[in-house]
Design a protein around this nucleic acid. Structure first.
Length: 348
DNA sequence: AAGGCGGGGCT
DNA sequence: AGCCCAGCCTT
């Protein structure tokens, strides 16, 4: 049996039962694919169920406020996915009359959809033989064929796409694509792959040459940046606080946070209240206490955030317009959601 | 071509 | 601690 047939045979016996496998509706497939970008199935699953029940059609999603969409996305990460999802939903609803584009060439034009996602939707929903290349596919192909081209080099990206395209079963492209991804996720795992039960034991180059541990090759490593965050959790006498939206380029675009003073190291109370930024925010008398005695380290893939939450009690602040009971309506980073869970446990 | 963007699970 | 996950966008 050739590669494709062996793979599909494996898939018939080992595929995972997932809700988006029961449909070819491009709206649902699109939703699942966006959610699963750089995200494990286990993490994305509950979000998929929540989105499909709250927004059964693309029109429902298009009608929602962006803030509502972000709130529902809260905790899933890479929030530009949610903003692009919403943008594209409005485009499909308003300009395309709710009809999803049906060819790879048209699909890839949509915001938030790249080569992988366009291939997935075109193959699964419209039977177009366009091969997906995600992290699973890089791993499976680099091992099976013994290819050491770095998967994140431009040469590697082209090479693996071309190879996958020659392997795809043109009579069932969607099944082939899902099969190779499931195979990578379940069998040909990054660590401790299940080579002893593998249908490719006699043809896998990496297994024969003992290269399983070294393939695939990835060339760059990400640098981690350390940052020191001081969130000012305002409480006025009339039970209001300040939240502001993060704009611009950095992390958590579109999410809300307490006023933030960033420093180049952990600072104490005196250093905080004597800083220009603090004085600008609170010229009047305040009572301040540090909520977390030990710094909270929140790790993103590329930044480590050393965080202190300062409880700032003051008589009144003209900036404080949000009622405490309304905080939960705002989309916030997990770092802040975790704080709120401890600070006002009754709410959760 | 390179860097930025979350959060969580596994080793 | 480091790596990876149904990647994409910007510069």
């Amino acid at each position: 049996m050739n590669f494709s047939n062996t793979l599909i045979y494996w898939y018939l016996q080992n595929s995972r039962e997932l809700p988006w496998r029961k449909t070819k509706n491009p709206y649902y497939i699109w939703l699942s694919e966006i959610m699963l970008q750089q995200t494990r199935v286990a993490q994305g699953l509950s979000y998929y169920l929540k989105f499909t029940s709250t927004f059964p059609t693309v029109f429902d999603l298009a009608k929602a406020d962006e803030s509502t969409v972000l709130k529902m996305w809260q905790g899933l990460g890479y929030y530009s996915r949610a903003r692009n999802l919403h943008f594209t939903a409005k485009q499909i609803a308003n300009e395309f009359n709710g009809e999803f584009p049906s060819t790879f060439k048209e699909i890839i034009k949509l915001k938030g959809i790249g080569d992988y996602t366009a291939s997935a939707i075109a193959s699964i929903c419209f039977d177009e033989p366009t091969a997906v290349v995600d992290g699973n596919v890089y791993r499976v192909l680099s091992r099976y064929f013994g290819i050491d081209t770095p998967i994140n080099s431009s040469a590697g990206i082209k090479e693996f796409k071309k190879l996958a395209q020659t392997l795809i079963d043109e009579s069932q492209p969607g099944t082939f694509n899902q099969a190779i991804m499931d195979f990578g996720a379940i069998q040909c795992k990054p660590k401790k792959p299940l080579c002893m039960f593998c249908p490719f034991t006699d043809s896998c180059v990496a297994l024969q040459k003992n290269l399983i541990e070294t393939l695939p090759v990835k060339e760059k490593k990400i640098k981690v940046r350390n940052r020191y965050f001081n969130f000012l959790v305002i409480k006025t006498k009339d039970n209001k606080t300040i939240l502001s939206e993060r704009k611009g380029k950095g992390i958590w675009q579109g999410l809300y946070q307490f006023p933030l003073i960033e420093s180049d190291k952990n600072i104490n109370k005196n250093e905080l209240i004597s800083s220009d930024e603090f004085i600008a925010l609170f010229p009047d008398e305040t009572t301040i206490s540090l909520f977390n005695k030990k710094e909270i380290v929140h790790k993103l893939s590329h930044q480590h955030l050393y965080t202190q939450f300062w409880i700032v009690e003051t008589e009144y602040s003209s900036e404080a317009k949000i009622n405490w009971s309304d905080i939960e309506k705002y989309p916030v980073p997990v770092l802040i959601a975790n704080f709120l869970k401890e600070y006002q446990p009754k709410k959760y």
